[in-house]
Design a protein around this nucleic acid. Structure first.
Length: 837
RNA sequence: GGGAGUAUGGCGGAACUGGUAGACGCGCCGGAUUCAAAAUCCGGUCACUUCGGUGGUGUGGGUUCGAUUCCCUCUACUCCUACCA
């Protein structure tokens, strides 16, 4: 009688075996080809969620597969451990952020261990540990000294009631999340990293990232936002001062009818000092949705049009001109820019068309309310008349440069990265402000600048600003009094370089160049699409910056990137309109009820989230069904890049399959051998084995899963029909264990060990089978492209031979009655198509 | 407004470089087992059909001997981005 599969015992046993034999501990080995698999490390929020389970399962498939393929695999894990939730927990749970964080790490590590992941835990890191963050303090100092880090004024969200700076996510509908007070903008002096210096390289190197999803490259490219245009100086009437504007449409210069400046333009700030109404206008602009309402203020200046003698343009301050892009100044050409047209209508400004669409014949055509931005011929523009747009751009730029009133100019949307956060639970910025006004980097020997030890964490200690005995210090060189910088790093700072640290996580230095040379770049990085821009762009920037600071010679950190889909679940709502958790929904006679017996309606399928209560806890699933079942479900059906819909029937099916696999053990042990030379089963299995590998290589694990199902079906049918000798059965199970190993490693080891093999299955080599070429081919016979019959033919047959079989086939003869064949098409090994008139 | 993507049974999804559409899983239907149920096992499952066939991959067209696959049109949905001059 078969013993029932006990996943708890079996999974624990193999997890222990892997640990005992240090199977996943990796050492540098120059003789072996390396493979670095990395999943985005988690924030230790408390416990893992299904998104993690999916992410790490995908990575584990790759890691185990590559290991069995003979690569020296690096597959590490760590914790993105600084961040706001720890501060919130500190306030509500009355725990120090550190205590809370390390407790969570412990819990989550336990969960990851339960999943049976092939991780090298010797390399575990936590970014809140001083031995981690001291290195990034050093990077910052290097950047500071190299001019890559600098300070400037920037706005923050200020809660006037709590008297604290709020992170963007703490501002809900313009109000502080705790106090509910209207959030104010406040200017603070903050630290920035000069990512803009790398705009061009960050953009052009995207081309070299062949193994990145195109989608992500497009997003980054848009974010960097390169545009080519010109700067043009407009001379202010009655003086020799200029207003310089940026434009990508210098070809429309003859259609310019006004100048508009942003509210923080130098000239505007000057003018506002003497003009109360202007000051008020600037203030009013803050609350204005400029997308809908365009407002301007004539500041009483005019400039001379550089190409039209005697023509003057009025100068406005306008709410729709961006502050931090270009020069904060534009020329308005209402005919060919919708925003300018809206503005011109509002203030009755001239509209002069200078580009004529192909289907328009009148030079003074009417634009109504739609600016024309398409292709066309230049008109009303003196020496540009008759040119195409691109030709006109070149010509006018040439002219501008000749006249020395402007220049060709490339602009980027990408802004420098503001890294200052006015928070407690982050890495201190290693800077001191000396009493004589000097801003100094902390000396290397004094690193790390550790966070202060505080007994009680409260609202008032949530910024370092208020901890005076930490803040006050002395300059070690001069003995002068000094204050520490009290801001901490944006947590993207930690995650911008953690993948380097894994190379040698316990080294005294941040890393060793030879380790980086060996392990980097990451061959396969896996994570959510939500990091498409910030994390990935910052990491790319960090790599280039550290390269230029002399740490190594790497250009790009992530060779391959894969962005997995979300885990979704149906939502439930009861008649009171409350969301209901799936586990509290019961089906009674075709109707859904919650545990208060209220009717429940099913809603949309959405990403699992606490607020919609449609989460399934991995803990419950692993407890009830085991890690293999959870992993198998994560890999079945849905292609990894698409959303995966969680269903109870799906997880049940996976559990059923794992049990089915387990039954092979008894089946084998009790199998009476049969004398058979039937090769059919074995040949089909070989073909399926190869298909499993092919699909892993291209990240289509759902197809591998389907092929494994087929394998099991073919094997079971072969057993049922006595087509396998015991030896072949053993061979089948041996191969089955191997192809199962990356997907469901525990049951794989269990089957493997029952075959009395000495080593662990994970230490086996992956299999590639020589598939005998079929001697017989199946050929589809079509008439006019419609399949009528399928025949088996010998491979050696010629076209004529096959065609004569086809012509003599009864079914085909019948179908051809009264028709004449006009053409015969034969694709070897595939089809015959008979074309009739 | 701009950009990217998706569309195949009741559902999730297969179909190699154009060559047998619906693999595999779920669900459903029938049967076996059971006092009964669960579990398990076996069979069936695109639609229509006069059982010969016919139609069918969001819509309409095109290329081809042949189109889920390539090209054009339209529609719907999803995601990103949003005054970047």
């Amino acid at each position: 009688m078969s013993s029932r599969y006990n996943h708890k015992v079996v999974e624990k046993k193999w997890q222990q075996a892997w640990l005992d034999k240090k199977v996943f501990q990796t050492l540098k080995d120059k003789n072996k080809k390396k493979y670095y698999v990395l999943e985005m490390f988690p924030y230790p929020s408390g416990k893992i969620h299904m998104g993690h389970v999916r992410n790490y399962t995908l990575g584990d498939v790759v890691a185990r597969y590559k290991k069995m393929k003979g690569f020296n695999v690096l597959h590490p894990m760590g914790w993105d451990a600084f961040g706001l939730p720890a501060e919130n927990a500190a306030l509500t749970e009355k725990k120090h952020p550190e205590t809370w964080t390390y407790q969570n790490i412990k819990t989550m590590k336990g969960q990851l261990l339960q999943m049976g992941l092939s991780l090298d835990w010797e390399r575990e890191i936590a970014t809140c540990h001083p031995e981690y963050y001291k290195h990034e303090q050093k990077f910052f100092i290097d950047m500071f000294k190299a001019g890559l880090a600098y300070k400037k004024e920037a706005e923050v969200n200020w809660d006037p009631v709590d008297k604290t700076v709020l992170a963007n996510e703490q501002v809900i509908d313009g109000r502080g999340w705790r106090s509910g007070a209207l959030v104010e903008k406040k200017k603070l002096s903050q630290w920035f990293l000069k990512i803009s210096k790398y705009s061009d390289e960050l953009l052009s190197d995207l081309d070299s990232l062949d193994n990145w999803p195109n989608k992500v490259k497009v997003m980054q490219s848009n974010w960097i936002g390169k545009s080519i245009g010109a700067e043009i100086d407009f001379n202010i009437s009655g003086g020799d001062k200029n207003i310089t504007v940026f434009t990508t449409r210098p070809d429309t210069i003859f259609g310019a009818t006004f100048i508009a400046l942003s509210t923080d333009h130098e000239l505007v700030i000057d003018a506002s000092k003497k003009n109360v109404r202007l000051k008020k206008f600037i203030k009013d602009c803050e609350g204005l949705n400029s997308d809908k309402i365009k407002r301007g203020f004539n500041i009483g200046l005019s400039v001379n049009h550089p190409f039209i003698e005697g023509k003057k343009l009025q100068v406005f301050v306008a709410n729709f001109v961006l502050k931090e892009y270009g020069l904060g100044a534009i020329f308005g050409c209402p005919a060919h820019d919708q925003r300018d047209l809206d503005f011109a209508k509002e203030y009755n400004l001239e509209v002069i068309p200078v580009v004529k669409p192909i289907d328009v014949f009148n030079d003074s055509y009417n634009l109504d309310n739609d600016a024309y931005t398409g292709e066309g011929t230049i008109i009303n523009s003196d020496f540009l008349n008759g040119l195409k747009i691109d030709e006109a751009k070149n010509k006018i730029i040439e002219e501008i440069e000749n006249k020395k009133i402007g220049r060709k100019k490339v602009n980027f949307k990408l802004r420098d990265w503001g890294i200052s956060r006015q928070r407690f639970w982050g890495c201190p910025i290693p800077i001191i402000y000396r009493e004589d006004g000097e801003v100094l980097a902390v000396e290397d020997v004094e690193l790390p600048v550790k966070l202060p030890e505080i007994k009680k964490f409260s609202e008032s200690s949530s910024t370092l600003e208020n901890i005076s005995d930490w803040k006050e210090t002395v300059c070690s060189k001069t003995g002068m009094k000094a204050f520490r910088e009290t801001d901490t790093f944006d947590t993207f700072f930690e995650s911008s370089w953690y993948y380097f640290r894994y190379c040698n996580a316990r080294l005294d230095k941040a890393f060793d160049k030879s380790d980086i040379d060996y392990w980097l770049p990451v061959d396969q990085y896996i994570g959510g699409i939500e990091h498409a821009i910030l994390h990935l762009l910052y990491s790319r920037f960090f790599t280039k910056a550290l390269r230029d600071l002399g740490y190594f010679s790497l250009d790009e950190p992530f060779k391959g990137l894969f962005t997995q889909g979300m885990v979704t679940h149906i939502t439930y709502k009861n008649t009171n309109g409350d969301w209901v958790e799936p586990k509290n929904v019961e089906k009674i006679d075709d109707r859904f009820k919650d545990n208060n017996k209220l009717d429940v309606k099913t809603g949309k399928i959405e990403k699992m989230s606490k607020s919609k209560k449609n989460v399934v806890d991995p803990n419950d699933i692993i407890e009830t069904y085991g890690a293999d079942t959870a992993r198998w479900f994560m890999l079945s059906d849905s292609p990894p890049e698409r959303d995966l819909q969680w269903t109870d029937t799906g997880i049940a099916a996976s559990f059923k399959f794992i049990n089915k696999l387990f039954e092979f053990i008894d089946k084998f042990n009790n199998y009476k051998t049969h004398n058979t030379n039937d090769l059919e089963v074995k040949e089909s299995l070989k073909k399926l084995i190869n298909q499993v590998s092919e699909n892993i290589e291209v990240f289509q694990f759902n197809k591998s899963v389907a092929k494994i199902y087929e394998y099991v079906n073919v094997l079971n049918e072969g057993l049922l029909k006595n087509k396998l000798s015991k030896k072949d059965f053993e061979w089948s199970l041996e191969k089955l264990s191997i192809i199962l190993q990356p997907f469901v490693p525990h049951i794989s080891e269990e089957i493997w060990s029952n075959l009395s093999r000495e080593n662990l299955c994970i230490n086996e080599s992956w299999v590639v089978e020589d598939v005998k070429k079929n001697i017989k081919f199946k050929i589809a016979i079509q008439i006019n492209g419609k399949t009528k019959e399928i025949i088996e033919v010998d491979e050696k047959l010629t076209k004529d031979g096959i065609l004569s079989i086809v012509r003599n086939n009864d079914k085909i003869k019948k179908n051809l009655l009264g028709k004449n064949i006009s053409r015969e098409i034969y694709v070897p090994g595939k089809i015959v198509n008979l074309v009739t008139l």
